[in-house]
Design a protein around this nucleic acid. Structure first.
Length: 691
RNA sequence: GGCGAGGUAGCUCAGGCGGUUAGAGCGCAGGAUUCAUAACCCUGAGGUCGAGGGUUCAACUCCCUCUCUCGCUACCA
């Protein structure tokens, strides 16, 4: 279908930390490339985003840091916004969900669904942590998944089998805040009956989007739909969030995943009075750029909400990317294993385009990918510097030397095969780049841009105008050959500017300056044209578009990564030490119930088909017994034979992997998870009591 | 042990309704060249497409088994 306008959203970053390059590569950069391209096409397009500022993690962080949630989100909203701005992510608006406008929009949306009787109102017993004095958000309850039996499923989702859950379905729930057992407390909430939208979703996605959506997105949606959907509570007990706009709803706010996607709508409202055109007219193409962790919300829940509301269009596509690893390891904010955008900008000032280039060329479009600083260096040095930058530079230098600094004429009567081939290549490049971007294949599109520069280098090499110049004394007419070559190289350069613009806007601006042309030239319809630079037009001296990345810079960054990670680990260790709370006080009789004994290891062997279990024969003095212990990753079986250990001798026996374990060997564990035996410092008779 | 993804040139990866000599970029070797940020250009070496078996006239591409890697998860009380 033909669209008359486009609305692009990029996932709202969660305002409890800065953004890293994985965020850029997965979502914001592809969105920006797409948008810049569409703008160049002069299509009516809006690009909206903003900070997601509600939700439990922010309240927890505020509590931990002794400040308010508002202070936390103010800090990161500013920081994230600056990073985007500096990287050239060209939102039409970067809003925030704590804004008044968003609260009003979200409340109106909620009220409409309420008035239409969409919600199921349920008074339930909700889990409440008496120690933390708070109702527990879904993800702060851990328990056993009803679908697959995973004991560490979260209250909203089981990461093992991917099932979308509600906390009531969990077996053996416990609080992640204080690890106390949550108690049930009565509370009223409003549920969105996702199950009633299964048929709609199946028809819309499973039937309608099969060949249109990326296979990773489609496959995940299908598996959720196959497993069946449950009603989900769309409200929470909390004081941080959008208040539920109903009487008798004090202390109730909207579920953050209810209000966050509505943030796209409120941001659009804030941007333009014509906002409704972008959300309600069928001839609008709505595209959500997200990371793969957001697929369920953007493909299942939000569309159902929009459908239920009735006034809104549905997304045309949700091109979710996979994850970007760093130097072979998964990005982890808690381990501080990440390349932070604000730090990159500090370390590589004015070099945003290198990062944009590398992240796009190696984007995790079809599978998780790895970012390494070596690759960053290689791509910069051999592709941006040697191919792209060098072509532009040598073209300008030669033009100044051989053509008096002006665009030479094109003598059509002497065009040869090579000239015609390069002209065709320029025209083809437009088509290739365009088709790939339209299909969300940004890596391939960018390859075509560089490939055009590569063809330019080859063409110039074959033409050798610097050699031809030496023949001018004898054959002055050869100037025409030089003219043609340089003319085409210059037009190719102008084309490169247009094609590279969505990907590397900063570089494009430098090129425009050198060519003394204005932004209007970048309009996409100009791509493929050979008259972008007027004959005899004087051009400026070249400036280098890219500079090499030296080995030391690579080393510095890699070191920095490891140092930051080590520092964060150390900090975590200290926090563990200082914050591991001392357990509830016990009386002597409680302690006396424990029977601790010294035992000597007689024999040890790995339990087959397990990673961690070791079967250990112990001499307890009064008897020999078998204990199964989870230490196989820390010790070799032979190495521990003869060691003396402390054993809980009167622990109830328990079967593991078919072996009855009688007792438990005490271990000390440091912050690394490394295990050490707790042993008597001198040989002690087996069976000796420990008191 | 379970689930998912994956094993294609030294490296990073494409690809393939099964069908002539399996691709790209980087790296490497050699050559050419000097307009250009020792850049560009040309040529070349290099792969039994993880292993084994099966289906087929024909498999790297389909099926089965195995193996290894990565992630999640289980066993740790």
């Amino acid at each position: 279908m033909d669209y008359n306008r486009i609305l692009v959203t990029a996932a709202l970053p969660y305002a409890n930390g800065p953004i890293h390059i994985g965020h850029l590569a997965g979502c914001f950069l592809p969105a920006d490339i797409y948008v810049r391209y569409q703008r160049a096409q002069k299509r009516d397009i809006k690009f909206v985003c903003g900070s997601d500022e509600h939700g439990v993690p922010i309240t927890i962080r505020a509590r931990k840091e002794g400040t308010t949630p508002q202070a936390i989100v103010d800090k990161y909203h500013k920081m994230i916004g600056d990073s985007f701005n500096d990287m050239g992510i060209s939102f039409d608006i970067y809003s925030r969900t704590s804004s008044k406008g968003h609260h009003e929009t979200a409340q109106a949306f909620f009220k409409k669904l309420y008035d239409d009787g969409i919600f199921e109102e349920k008074e339930t017993e909700q889990f409440y942590d008496e120690e933390a004095k708070a109702f527990l958000a879904d993800r702060y309850i851990i328990g056993t998944c009803p679908v697959c039996g995973n004991e560490n499923a979260y209250g909203d989702q089981c990461e093992k089998c991917g099932s979308s859950l509600s906390p009531e379905q969990l077996k053996n729930p416990h609080s992640a805040l204080s690890s106390s057992i949550p108690v049930k407390k009565k509370t009223k909430h409003w549920y969105f009956p996702l199950n009633k939208y299964e048929d709609f979703l199946k028809e819309w996605i499973v039937e309608g989007k099969k060949d249109e959506w990326k296979s990773n997105v489609y496959g995940q949606c299908k598996s959720w739909l196959d497993n069946g959907l449950q009603p989900r509570a769309m409200t929470r007990d909390s004081n941080w969030g959008v208040p539920v706009p109903l009487p008798n709803a004090e202390g109730k706010v909207m579920y953050v995943w209810f209000d966050a996607p509505i943030g796209y709508i409120s941001a659009t409202k804030e941007l333009t009075p014509q906002w409704a055109d972008y959300w309600q007219k069928e001839d609008t193409k709505l595209v959500h750029f997200i990371g793969k962790d957001n697929i369920v919300f953007h493909c299942i829940i939000f569309p159902s909400m929009l459908k239920a509301h009735g006034d809104f269009i549905l997304p045309d596509n949700v091109p979710a990317n996979e994850f970007l690893n760093i130097e072979g390891d998964k990005v982890s904010t808690s381990r501080n294993w990440a390349v932070w955008v604000h730090e990159y900008l500090k370390d590589f000032p004015e070099q945003q385009d290198i990062l944009r280039y590398v992240l796009c060329a190696n984007a995790p479009e079809t599978k998780d990918n790895d970012f390494t600083w070596k690759d960053f260096q290689d791509r910069n040095n051999s592709e941006l510097v040697a191919i792209f930058g060098n072509f532009v530079n040598r073209t300008f230098v030669l033009m100044h030397k051989l053509c008096e600094g002006r665009v030479p004429p094109l003598h059509e009567d002497i065009l040869d095969e090579q000239d015609k081939a390069i002209i065709q290549a320029i025209k083809d490049a437009k088509t290739y780049v365009e088709q790939n971007i339209e299909n969300y294949k940004f890596r391939d599109a960018l390859y075509e841009v560089i490939d055009l520069a590569r063809k330019g280098n080859k063409y110039m090499q074959e033409k050798e105008p610097w050699i031809v110049a030496k023949t001018l004394a004898d054959n002055p007419e050869n100037q025409m050959k030089i003219d043609n070559c340089m003319h085409l190289c210059l037009q190719l350069t102008a084309n490169l500017a247009i094609l590279a613009n969505p990907f590397m806007p900063f570089t494009t601006q430098k090129m425009l300056h050198m060519m003394k042309v204005v932004d209007k030239m970048l309009e996409w319809e100009n791509a493929g044209r050979l008259d972008l630079l007027k004959v005899k037009y004087p051009l400026r001296a070249p400036e280098l578009l890219f500079k090499k990345i030296e080995d030391e810079q690579v080393k510095e960054q890699v070191d920095k990564l490891h140092e930051a990670s080590a520092a964060s680990k150390q900090q975590a260790e200290q926090e563990t030490k200082s914050s591991a709370p001392v357990k509830e006080e016990i009386v002597f009789d409680d302690f006396a119930k424990l029977d601790l004994r010294v035992g000597t290891i007689l024999h040890a062997e790995r339990v087959p088909k397990t990673d961690k279990l070791m079967k250990i024969e112990l001499d307890m003095g009064f008897e020999k017994r078998t204990v199964v212990s989870g230490i196989a990753q820390h010790f070799e079986a032979e190495a521990i034979i003869g060691k003396q250990v402390t054993v809980v001798a009167n622990l109830a026996p328990r079967k593991m992997k078919g072996i009855e374990s009688k007792g438990m060997i005490l271990m000390a564990e440091d912050a690394d998870g490394k295990l050490v035996f707790v042993s008597p410092v001198q040989q002690t008779a087996p069976g000796s009591e420990v008191r």
